[in-house]
Design a protein around this nucleic acid. Structure first.
Length: 271
DNA sequence: AGACAGACCTGTGAGC
DNA sequence: TGCTCACAGGTCTGTC
């Protein structure tokens, strides 16, 4: 489910209800996520002051005066704000409740998400330490992609989805940015010119920024902090459009499996 | 080092 | 209606 734009949309939705607030309690109904929710978190977070809610890659960072909680939404996770209590449903695994009475509720049917504790310096946490640059930062550009791709024979699509190269580019936005840059997803990463990587980096930035603006992509179940769907699906050029005409050349969009993931592209426009 | 398959888990929709 | 199968936004782990 959530790629960077969906995580950022979530961050913006929940931050106003958490920043500057004290945590009253963490209520865990199901601790078996991708990794178990640490048992100490309930007591560690009770009474903590939330300083800031930020994001690194697809992790949400809830920074408190006692350390930082990391939350990942996995494939099917969502966090939303309840301003009044609602009966929890089957896959509502934890609630973070503030002194002001807001409930931040985590739902995740597939349980690929996570809630972890990073202590004081989250940048050294194993989940964070090896991450590549943020795609929307100045540290990420065509030169970066070019330099790290030399000698690599794997498909460029897998290369840009590798979080040690750049974070936050998941299956949807990898397909979309490769289409916009007219690069075939199977092209070996090491055989793409600097000029084409400069275009690709620009398209990655553009597609992610536009998706954030539109509140993310809802394919089936993504909801923002208020429980609403995102609107970027209407802007998808190739993803989930197998057989439909390419917006550029009208040839049918193709779907092939690359790196065990469905990949959508136009064989006419992308080389 | 890097490329690839397998693993984790539940729900949904298509086809029979 | 109900069964089986393929597939779904991620990413860690193990093997070659």
């Amino acid at each position: 489910m959530p790629e960077l734009p969906e995580v950022e949309t979530t961050r913006r939705g929940i931050a106003p209800y958490l920043e500057g607030q004290a945590v009253q309690s963490l209520l865990v109904r199901e601790s078996r996520l991708r990794w178990p929710i640490p048992a100490h978190l309930t007591s560690t977070l009770a009474g903590a002051q939330v300083l800031q809610v930020s994001r690194r890659g697809k992790f949400l960072l809830i920074q408190t005066d006692r350390g930082t909680a990391l939350s990942h939404l996995g494939m099917s996770g969502s966090l939303r704000v309840l301003t009044r209590p609602e009966a929890p449903e089957k896959h509502d695994h934890f609630d973070l409740i503030t002194d002001a009475g807001s409930i931040i509720r985590y739902r995740d049917p597939r349980r690929f998400g996570a809630l972890l504790w990073a202590g004081e310096d989250h940048s050294t946490h194993p989940m964070i330490a090896r991450m590549g640059p943020e795609p929307l930062s100045d540290d990420f550009d065509g030169q970066h992609l070019f330099a790290h791709s030399r000698g690599r024979k794997g498909a460029v699509k897998n290369f840009i989805m590798n979080g040690e190269i750049v974070v936050g580019v998941g299956n949807i936005y990898a397909c979309e940015s490769l289409f916009s840059a007219a690069i075939h997803p199977r092209r070996p990463a090491g055989r793409i010119s600097l000029a084409r990587y400069e275009l690709l980096a620009d398209e990655i930035k553009k597609v992610l920024a536009k998706a954030i603006e539109m509140g993310g992509t809802t394919l089936r179940d993504f909801v923002n902090g208020s429980g609403q769907a995102g609107y970027f699906k209407q802007s998808l050029n190739v993803y989930d459009r197998e057989g439909q005409p390419c917006v550029g050349c009208a040839k049918p969009i193709r779907r092939e499996v690359i790196g065990q993931r469905s990949t959508y592209f136009c064989a006419g426009c992308q080389r």
